[in-house]
């Protein structure tokens, strides 16, 4: 069997989730948003800056043996609004959908305002209202500070 260039980079997964069409260079931030940045048992493949017909370059993340839920993947839209989610069962794409940003982002971002109560040891999670999805405009529920650019810089 002749391996194609793509196959040599990464093999198909049997069960799990493939996050495709991630904006190039954002794959590690996607893992961060998904909370997969500590030690993990899961088999994870990360492809960065692969050639894409539509995007030019893109990133792909594959998470084996875990079907990510809509609530958790939608947060990815913050940094990769064009990402698509493929749920894989027995090597087949069982479900496929585009990410859609939620109206409220909880516990994912840190408020840029140092004097915001959410940046203290209080027992609360940061909360941002999504005022606009494209371009992204977030407003802190606590101090009303807005975030419009460099979103990845504020990921917790």
């Amino acid at each position: 069997m002749i391996l194609t260039e793509m196959m040599m980079k990464v093999t198909p997964i049997k069960n799990g989730t493939v996050i495709d069409h991630i904006s190039a260079g954002q794959a590690l931030n996607v893992l961060k948003i998904l909370g997969i940045y500590h030690t993990t048992d899961a088999t994870i493949s990360v492809l960065m800056n692969v050639t894409s017909r539509n995007l030019g370059k893109k990133d792909i993340v594959k998470v084996e043996m875990r079907e990510l839920e809509v609530g958790e993947v939608n947060k990815i839209a913050l940094i990769a609004p064009g990402a698509t989610i493929n749920i894989i069962r027995d090597y087949e794409v069982a479900e496929k959908y585009a990410v859609d940003m939620p109206d409220l982002i909880v516990g994912v971002m840190r408020c840029p305002n140092h004097n915001c109560i959410s940046n203290t040891d209080e027992p609360i999670k940061s909360q941002f209202l999504v005022k606009n999805k494209n371009p992204v405009v977030l407003r802190c529920l606590y101090c009303e500070q807005t975030i419009t650019e460099n979103i990845a810089d504020y990921l917790i």
């Binding site: 305002n113 915001c116 109560i117 203290t120 802190c140 529920l141 009303e144």
Partner: peptide, 10 residues
């Protein structure tokens, strides 16, 4: 009244 913004919301 509190010096941190958002404290009343909390």
């Amino acid at each position: 009244r509190h010096p941190k913004e958002g404290s009343a919301q909390l």
